[in-house]
């Protein structure tokens, strides 16, 4: 179990923040891209109290907001929190200031990918990639295919084998993928427009 997270865990008290070196426009950018008004956050920490996944995060949800407010771009984009967040909106529902925190996390994930930041949770990203691959191929998510390709990618064939076998035994995972007939309509989405 991870140690409890404090209000703003900046990985040890020794972290010195030199404001002149931070990204002054980060808060403005995230605000525009996510549509969430994060300057209204007064760090009451309600969001962290409700988040079911907080134990597995390196920063609590309001900690990520703090990073953004401070312009600490790298720390925000490389945090585990943005990938552990599943977008369950528990925090967004509870926030007294009506801030859609899940939207902020989504925006940070997008920037992390676009800017090639170091991804803190590569397994989670790999899983998403396999889901998207399946959608590209069949137009629908084919669970068995996703799990097999995911396992190959992360090279953990035996982790979770029992659950997989039980699901197969109950025919919870189909061998054959269900497909969209007009699959070219789907695959076309994945080709840049200038190549179509």
């Amino acid at each position: 179990m991870n140690p409890p997270v404090s209000a703003l865990n900046l990985r040890g008290a020794a972290t010195r923040i030199v404001f002149a070196e931070q990204d002054r426009f980060l808060a403005r950018d995230i605000q525009r891209l996510s549509g969430a008004n994060l300057s209204r956050c007064f760090h009451c920490r309600t969001c962290g109290n409700g988040c079911p996944f907080i134990r597995h995060m390196d920063y609590p949800p309001n900690g990520v907001i703090r990073l953004v407010q401070f312009g600490m771009r790298q720390q925000a984009l490389e945090s585990h929190t943005i990938w552990i967040c599943v977008g369950c909106h528990t925090c967004s529902v509870q926030c007294p200031m009506g801030i859609d925190i899940a939207a902020i996390m989504a925006t940070l994930r997008r920037l992390a990918l676009e800017e090639g930041a170091m991804i803190a949770e590569t397994n989670i990203l790999d899983f998403h990639r396999e889901v998207l691959h399946s959608i590209k191929q069949y137009g629908r998510a084919h669970k068995l295919g996703i799990m097999l390709r995911y396992k190959a990618r992360v090279r953990q064939w035996f982790a979770d084998l029992d659950v997989g076998l039980r699901m197969l035994a109950k025919r919870k995972m189909d061998l054959k993928a269900s497909r969209v007939k007009a699959i070219n309509e789907i695959t076309r989405l994945f080709i840049p427009y200038w190549k179509r």
Partner: peptide
């Protein structure tokens, strides 16, 4: 001939798709 709704994963990797 419906297709996947977009799913969490697609939304995370590429919002436009």
């Amino acid at each position: 001939d419906w297709n996947c709704c977009g799913s969490s994963s697609a939304n995370i990797l590429d919002k436009e798709i």
